[in-house]
Design a protein around this nucleic acid. Structure first.
Lengths: 352, 352
DNA sequence: ACTGTTTATGGGAACGTTCCCAATAATGCA
DNA sequence: TGCATTATTGGGAACGTTCCCATAAACAGT
C-alpha cells in the first residue's frame, strides 16, 4: 500500500497542508519542518498520486496521442518526438491507435477524453470532418492535428504541404522524362494525406498535359498491394514510373516488381512519400519526399503546450519537406530512345 | 465544463448512486429510471471521469509501458501488440521511453508509478538488476518484462532465447564455411539482449574451435557504427562474416560496407537480429533471427492481465524464434577456394 | 505594552466517483 | 390484514490531493 500525503504528514509531525506546500513549493517553509518532511518522504518512498492531484486540480499532466498505427515508422517517429517534448514539459502521454479505422478512431478519442487528458495530438483518417473531431470539439478539449493537412479547418495543425510536395515530386518525375506515371495510394477513406498527394500528382500531370491515371487504392497494411501492382505491370503499355503515397507502399511495390522480374530503376522508376530512415539505406536509395517526422511530433507537442498555457494558435503550420531524388528514380529507357529533348532533364534528375 | 454524474442524476431525477449503478450495471434498475438516465447521459454527452473513478476504486485501467525507443521497429511493433491486447481488455496505456539510458529509465518508471498504473510492461536496459526494477518491486506493482531475457529472475517475462538463437545463427554461419566472424553489438550497458547474443556467438565459436573476436560495442542510435565497421574492414585479414546484434545495426553496417566498395554477400556476409519487416523486403533479404515482436507485446499484455486477475505467473516465457538464412548470408569466397569439405554445408546455406 | 504585519501552519471543503448502509415501496404468503 | 422479503433508491463517507481561510506565533514600529 503506497504511502499518502497524510502518512508523510504524520511522520514529519505536521499537517498534510504543509506537506502539500512542500511538494508544490508554493510558500516558504521553516527549515526544520522542511527537513523532516524531506526525510519522511525519502524514508517512506512517498510519491504524490497523480490521480488525487489531477482530480482536485481538474487538469491532468497527460496528453492523449492518437495515431493510425505504430508499425508505420512515420508515426512511430512522430510519437517519439511527441514523447521527447512531453517529457521535458513534465507531461505523460496516453497512446491510442486507430488502425486507420474511423470507428475505432472515434471510440479511442472518447476513451482518451474520459481520461481527462489536458489535450490531444491526433492523426485522423480525415482531418476535415470526422466523428472523433466532433467529440473533441464538443468536449472543448484542446488539440493539435498532426500530418492531417487540415487546410480548410481553423484548428492548429502540424503538417507538410502534401499536395504541393506531391506536385513537386511529380514534376521531377516528368522532367526526368517519364510520360506514363501511375499512382498507388492508401485508401482515401483512411488517409487524407493519400488523397491530397494524389491531387498534387494530378495537378502536375494536367499542367504538363500528360495522362492522369486513376488512383490505385490499396489497403494500408493489407496484402492487396502486390496483386494490384502485378496487374498494373502485366497490362500492355505499363507505366514507366510508379508513385506511391507512402514509402512503405513503395517498398512493397519494389518487392513485387522484383518478383515480376523488373528492375528498379532500370525498368521502372519508383518514388514514395515520407522519407523513412530505412529508405535511405537501400541500394539504390528510395526516391521520396522526406518529411521531418520526429520534428513534427515534437513541434505538435510544443504547440499543444502553448495552447494549454493560454496562447491560442489557430493556423495550421507546414514544416518543410525535402525531395530526395535519384536512386530509384531515373530516366526511363523508352523516353531516351524516343525523345531527344528529354535528355537534358533526364540527366539532371539522374545526378540528383 | 464536462457534465458530472450529479448533473446526470439531477436531469434524470434520481440520485448519483443510481446513475453509478446504471453505469456499472451492478444491480437491476427500474425500466423508467433506466431510460431517463440513458437519455440524460446521451443529451449531456456525459462520460464518467476515469480520474474520479480510479481514485475511489484505487486502481486504474491504465498500464505503463516503457521501451527504449520507438524508432526501432522492434519496439514499435511490440507496443502495437500491447496496444491491441490492451484495448480488447478495456485498458489504456501510458507510454514512456528510456532512450537506452538507465537514469531516464528509472525516472520514467517513477513517473509511471505516480500515475497509479495497475501494472507495467517494460523493456529495461538490464532485466536482472536495475534501479527501476527496485522501485517497482518496492511499490509492489505487478509487471511483465518484455525482451529482457531475465533468466535469473523469478518475475514474469516474455522473451526469446537470445543466447540460444544467437548460437544457432552463428552455427549456421560457421557451417556456411565462415571462419572469421565478427560481432557488432549495441553497448552491453544499454541492452542485455546484446550481451546475451554475444554470449551465444562465443559459445558457438568456441565449440567449433574458431577464434572469438571481442565485441565491437557501438552506441545504439549514434553515428559511431560506420566508423567502427570501416576500421574493421580496412584492417588486414578482415572477417568474412559480420553478425550484428540488431537488424538496424545490420542495415547500417551494410550501407557502410557498400560505401567501402564491398558487396554483400559476395565479399562479406551479414546477419542481424530481430527480423524487422523491412529486412525481408530488401534484395537480397537480410539474414536474421526473427522474433515475433507483435505477438510478444500482445502476450506480455495478456500475461499482465492474468496477473492482475490474481493468477500469479512467475516463470519467464520464451516465444519461438526463426532463423532466416540465405540472402545476405552466403558461402565465403575464400572458404570455398581453400577448403573442400565446406562445400556441402556452404551450398546448403546458400539455398536457404 | 499594544497594535499591525508578516511568517508558518492547521482545518476543512472540494474534485467525481464508488459502495456500504439504510430507507422506502412493492410484493408474496399465510 | 399483517409480516417477511424483495426490488429500488437515497445518503454519505471515502479515495489523495489542492487550496482557501483561519489561527497562532513572532516580529516590527511607535
Amino acid at each position: 500500500m503506497a504511502a499518502t500525503i497524510i502518512d508523510v504528514a504524520n511522520r514529519a509531525g505536521c499537517s498534510k497542508s504543509t506537506v502539500s506546500r512542500f511538494l508544490n513549493g508554493s510558500t516558504v517553509i521553516a527549515e526544520g519542518t522542511r527537513a523532516r518532511i524531506a526525510q519522511a518522504i525519502d524514508e517512506m518512498g512517498f510519491r504524490p498520486s497523480e490521480i488525487g492531484r489531477s482530480l482536485k486540480r481538474r487538469l491532468t499532466q497527460t496528453v492523449g496521442v492518437l495515431v493510425p498505427s505504430l508499425t508505420n515508422p512515420v508515426f512511430a517517429s512522430s510519437v517519439a518526438g511527441i514523447q521527447a517534448q512531453a517529457r521535458s514539459a513534465g507531461r505523460s502521454i496516453i497512446l491510442a491507435t486507430s488502425d486507420y479505422d474511423p470507428d475505432i478512431e472515434k471510440e479511442a478519442v472518447a476513451n482518451l477524453l474520459g481520461h481527462n487528458v489536458s489535450g490531444l495530438i491526433l492523426t485522423l483518417c480525415n482531418g476535415v470532418s470526422s466523428a472523433a473531431l466532433d467529440l473533441i470539439e464538443s468536449a472543448g478539449c484542446p488539440f493539435v492535428l498532426l500530418f492531417n493537412d487540415a487546410v480548410g479547418s481553423n484548428g492548429p495543425a502540424i503538417s507538410v504541404d502534401n499536395e504541393g510536395s506531391a506536385r513537386e515530386l511529380t514534376e521531377a518525375v516528368i522532367s526526368a522524362g517519364h510520360r506514363r506515371i501511375a499512382f498507388v495510394a492508401a485508401h482515401f477513406a483512411s488517409s487524407d494525406r493519400s488523397r491530397l498527394r494524389y491531387c498534387g500528382y494530378t495537378t502536375a500531370l494536367e499542367a504538363a498535359a500528360l495522362p492522369v491515371l486513376p488512383p490505385l487504392e490499396v489497403h494500408f497494411e493489407g496484402g492487396d498491394t502486390s496483386a494490384v501492382i502485378a496487374e498494373l505491370f502485366t497490362q500492355p503499355d505499363p507505366p514507366t514510373a510508379l508513385l506511391c503515397s507512402t514509402d512503405i507502399l513503395a517498398l512493397t511495390a519494389m518487392a513485387t516488381l522484383r518478383d515480376l522480374g523488373l528492375t528498379v530503376p532500370n525498368d521502372v522508376s519508383v518514388a514514395g512519400f515520407d522519407g523513412i530512415g530505412l529508405g535511405a539505406m537501400l541500394s539504390p536509395p528510395l526516391a521520396t519526399v522526406a518529411q521531418p517526422t520526429w520534428d513534427m511530433g515534437f513541434e505538435a507537442m510544443r504547440l499543444l503546450s502553448e495552447q494549454l498555457a493560454g496562447r491560442m494558435i489557430s493556423a495550421p503550420a507546414y514544416l518543410p519537406h525535402a525531395l530526395r531524388l535519384g536512386g530509384t528514380l531515373a530516366v526511363p529507357k523508352r523516353s531516351i530512345a524516343t525523345s531527344m529533348n528529354n535528355n537534358k532533364a533526364g540527366r539532371k534528375s539522374d545526378e540528383l
